[in-house]
Amino acid sequence: MDITQNTALVVIDVQQGFEDPFWGNRNNPSADDNIAVLIDAWQSAGRPVVFVRHDSEETWSPLRPGQSGNDFKPYVEDRRGKSGSREVLVSKLVNSAFYGTPDLDAWLKASDITQFAVVGIQTNMCVETTARMGGNLGYQVILPLDATHTFDLKGPFGWQRSGDDLSRATAVSLHGGRFAEVTTTEELLKAARTARD
Rank of each mutant, 00 (worst) to 15 (best):
D105E: 14
T123H: 10
G69I: 08
G177W: 10
E181M: 11
V37M: 11
L89Y: 08
T114N: 08
D2R: 13
E187A: 15
D105I: 01
D71A: 14
K109V: 15
V14M: 14
E58G: 00
P144I: 00
A192K: 00
F157T: 09
T150G: 15
N6E: 14
W60A: 13
A110W: 09
L145T: 05
Y75N: 07
V94K: 07
V118A: 03
W42Q: 10
T194N: 05
W42V: 14
G66D: 09
V88K: 06
L93V: 01
P156F: 05
E186V: 06
E128T: 12
F72G: 05
P21K: 03
S111A: 15
Y75I: 03
D40W: 00
R132I: 07
K82L: 15
G84E: 11
N27L: 04
R47Q: 15
T101Y: 12
P102Q: 05
I121S: 02
E58V: 00
V88R: 10
V49W: 12
S91A: 13
D146W: 07
S167L: 02
Q16I: 06
A97Y: 07
R79W: 10
H54M: 07
S111R: 15
G24S: 02
S173A: 15
A171H: 04
A41E: 13
V88Q: 06
G24E: 03
D112I: 01
S173I: 14
A45P: 14
T123P: 14
P144V: 00
D164P: 00
A45H: 11
S44F: 03
F98R: 12
A97M: 08
G84V: 01
R193L: 08
G177K: 09
T123Y: 11
A191C: 11
S173D: 13
D55V: 00
S56A: 12
R26F: 09
A195N: 07
K92R: 14
M133G: 00
V88A: 02
L93Q: 12
L104I: 02
A117S: 14
T7F: 06
M125T: 09
G135E: 02
F151S: 01
P102C: 02
T184A: 01
T130Q: 07
G163L: 03
L63V: 01
R196L: 08
G81R: 06
N136W: 05
F72P: 04
D71I: 00
G46H: 03
K190A: 15
K109S: 15
V50Q: 08
G158F: 04
Q115D: 10
F72N: 12
D103M: 01
T59R: 09
V52G: 13
A180L: 09
W159Q: 15
R168N: 05
F51Q: 03
D78F: 04
G135M: 06
M1L: 13
N136P: 00
V14L: 07
V127C: 11
A36T: 11
T184G: 06
K73E: 12
D32S: 10
C126I: 02
G177P: 07
E19N: 14
L104W: 06
Q16T: 13
S68V: 12
K92M: 11
I12D: 04
G69F: 08
V76L: 02
V88L: 06
S173H: 12
T7K: 10
N27P: 00
G66C: 06
F116I: 04
S85W: 09
S111D: 10
E128A: 15
T148Q: 02
V90A: 08
V141C: 09
V52Q: 09
T59S: 15
G24M: 05
V172K: 09
V90C: 08
D55C: 10
A8D: 07
A117F: 05
